[in-house]
Computed example of a mutant assay.
Amino acid sequence: MIDRILAKRIVPVVVLDRVESAEPLAEALLEGGLDIMEITFRTAAAEESIRRIAARFPEILLGAGTLLEKEQVRRARDAGAVFGLAPGLNPAIIASAKEIGLQFSPGVMTPSDVEQALSLGCELLKFFPAEVAGGVDMLKALAGPYGHTGVRFIPTGGVSSGNLSAYLKLPVVAAIGGSWMVDKQLVNDGKWAEITRITREALAAAAEAR
């Protein structure tokens, strides 16, 4: 999973209001060159959307985000998600994911969060909310005492086309999580060609930041 994420370095964070949007969105992202996506469990459409995409597009590395309850972890895995994420760090959720074999990235914001995550066997961590929590400067500070542990971060929250390069140039950043290429209005309006175009631009910018 980490190798796949490192190859693209962008994880689109998707909020779907309608199940019918799931497959066209997946097609739009694939057309743009991106075979990774995170569908957040913030809406009633999330679980069935994951199920449909997993069945039709097995080539997509499909994740479930905003997993806040043990039951959501199980449902996400059963629907076809191969990795999970959360905005915070809950040891019970991490344990639940481990029990069923779902790779999991908890959210962290402080040194204490990072240490707890490492102690629970998590090395790929979601840094959230990235910009509010100090952004690039905070990640540079965290890299000092923790970079040697092998920890890697996926900053999410306020990351955009304007600042993704600054994040991706940091050695401790595996990828960025962003929603601008899968903007909710674009999805709801069915503007798939526009999503494909923005996705291509984002991937090109990520490649330049290496």
Rank of each mutant, 00 (worst) to 15 (best):
S112R: 12
G63V: 06
R75Y: 03
R52Y: 03
A95D: 13
S119I: 06
P87L: 02
L68F: 12
A79M: 02
A54Q: 03
E115M: 14
L102V: 08
A117F: 07
A54N: 09
R51C: 08
Q116G: 12
G107N: 07
S105V: 09
P111W: 10
S112L: 14
I94F: 07
L62T: 00
S112P: 01
A55D: 14
D113R: 05
E115A: 13
P106Q: 11
A64L: 04
I50A: 06
L118E: 09
V73Y: 03
E71P: 01
T66G: 11
G107E: 05
G84A: 02
V114M: 07
F83P: 08
D78W: 01
R77G: 00
Q103M: 10
G84K: 01
A79R: 03
A79D: 02
L85P: 00
E69I: 12
P91H: 10
A79E: 04
T110F: 12
A64Q: 06
R56W: 00
A55G: 15
F57M: 00
L61T: 15
L62Y: 00
K70D: 15
R52G: 10
L85E: 04
V82L: 00
Q116M: 13
A55F: 01
M109V: 14
R74N: 07
I60D: 00
G101H: 08
T110A: 12
